[in-house]
């Protein structure tokens, strides 16, 4: 059997799985153009490559789509790298062609003098995971696909990949509404982001991609940003996003953010804390409780918190202690090329 990789995203991907694109150039996505790029070693490279693995049957002159991933070029703290999103398979034999696919991505990365390749794989543990499900700007509805986490991890390990990070998402139906001593204040998302970058006063913080530039992470409205304070001092900060996948599925659109008027009125059920910082675990929990029961967030039926690194045992214990249950974990496997 012969394989080849084509730079395109087949429509059947969207028929198979609902997705949300929330990256740069939202308007361009439907037109098929890749909206941005960056200079790398004096050459223009595209921001991302939609890669479809195709199996060719030369005798019957047929070809079949086997799997699909987005590959982003990004400036990480470890140099410029390729970031590969969760592979979506279209065939039953999920191992078929996978090595060929990854080897080709590595060759491409080497040719472009990139430092390494990172691959994001999800393991779903609950019935549903809300948006964003990825640390990139492409989120899939993970409940409608098989992520084949263990199979791909095993194959990648045999190809020299090592676990770079494992990050958990926890979810909960309404938390207890006991009296909390923290005060919440609406702030701009930028002020939370700035705090995230510059403040070292917070012992606990969510994991995000170590990207040094914009463009790869999910962005755009609607989002909610809050500071939690005690005695006038900021003790925690959060950025929350409503579940755009709900909207994407209901209205069959991959880019909900193009429809702000309807989006603004949409009664979302799920909410996710996508970025968080806290000085201690008690403050984190108190703030989460306060947050979930605050006036502005009334009506949400389920809340998730993402970016909980596997090594933060005490945070994981504390979340479990108040009723949060693991919704999924994401393993990022990496390989250095130089």
């Amino acid at each position: 059997m012969e394989f080849k990789i084509e730079a395109r995203m087949p429509p059947r991907l969207f028929s198979k799985v609902s997705l949300v694109y929330s990256g740069i150039g939202l308007r361009y996505f439907h037109t098929g153009f890749i909206p941005s790029g960056l200079m790398h070693l004096g050459k223009w490279v595209w921001r991302f490559y939609p890669l479809t693995l195709v199996r060719l049957d030369k005798t019957q002159e047929q070809h079949e789509e086997v799997l699909f991933s987005f590959c982003f070029i990004y400036q990480s703290i470890n140099g410029k790298r390729f970031f590969v999103t969760q592979p979506i398979t279209f065939v039953d034999d999920i191992r078929e062609g996978f090595e060929f696919f990854i080897e080709n991505i590595e060759d491409f990365a080497k040719e472009a003098c990139l430092n390494g390749v990172d691959i994001e794989l999800h393991q779903v543990l609950d019935e549903y995971v809300s948006y964003p499900t990825s640390y990139t700007c492409i989120s899939y509805d993970l409940s409608s696909i098989s992520c084949n986490h263990d199979v791909f991890v095993e194959q990648l390990r045999s190809m020299g990949y090592k676990e770079y990070v494992k990050v958990w998402t926890y979810g909960i139906a309404p938390l207890d509404d006991d009296e909390q001593t923290v005060c919440l204040q609406d702030v701009s998302p930028e002020s939370v982001s700035r705090m995230f970058i510059y403040e070292n006063l917070f012992s606990y913080r969510s994991w995000t991609l170590p990207t040094l530039e914009h463009g790869l992470k999910p962005f755009g409205t609607p989002q909610i940003a809050k500071f939690a304070s005690r005695d006038g001092l900021t003790e925690a900060a959060f950025i929350l996003r409503p579940d755009l996948l709900e909207f994407a599925k209901k209205y069959r659109t991959p880019i909900p953010q193009l429809y702000q008027k309807t989006l603004g009125k949409y009664p979302f059920s799920n909410l996710k804390v996508v970025m968080w910082l806290a000085k201690d675990i008690d403050t984190l929990l108190a703030s989460l409780k306060k947050l979930i029961h605050s006036e502005t967030l009334k009506g949400f039926k389920r809340t998730e918190i993402a970016g909980v690194e596997d090594r933060l045992e005490e945070v994981k214990r504390a979340l479990s202690g108040v009723g949060f249950r693991p919704a999924c974990y994401t393993t990022i496997l990496s390989k250095e090329l130089v």
Binding site: E6, A7, R8, M9, F29, T31, G32, F33, I34, W46, Y49, P50, E61
Partner: peptide
């Protein structure tokens, strides 16, 4: 379209003029 040599490249380029850049869609 297979009657055209390089048809697979053609369907990637048809909605653009002259750039051999990657695209999301084929047309």
């Amino acid at each position: 379209l297979k009657l055209l040599e390089d048809w697979d490249l053609y369907v990637r380029l048809i909605h653009e003029n002259d750039v051999l850049s990657p695209k999301l869609k084929t047309q």
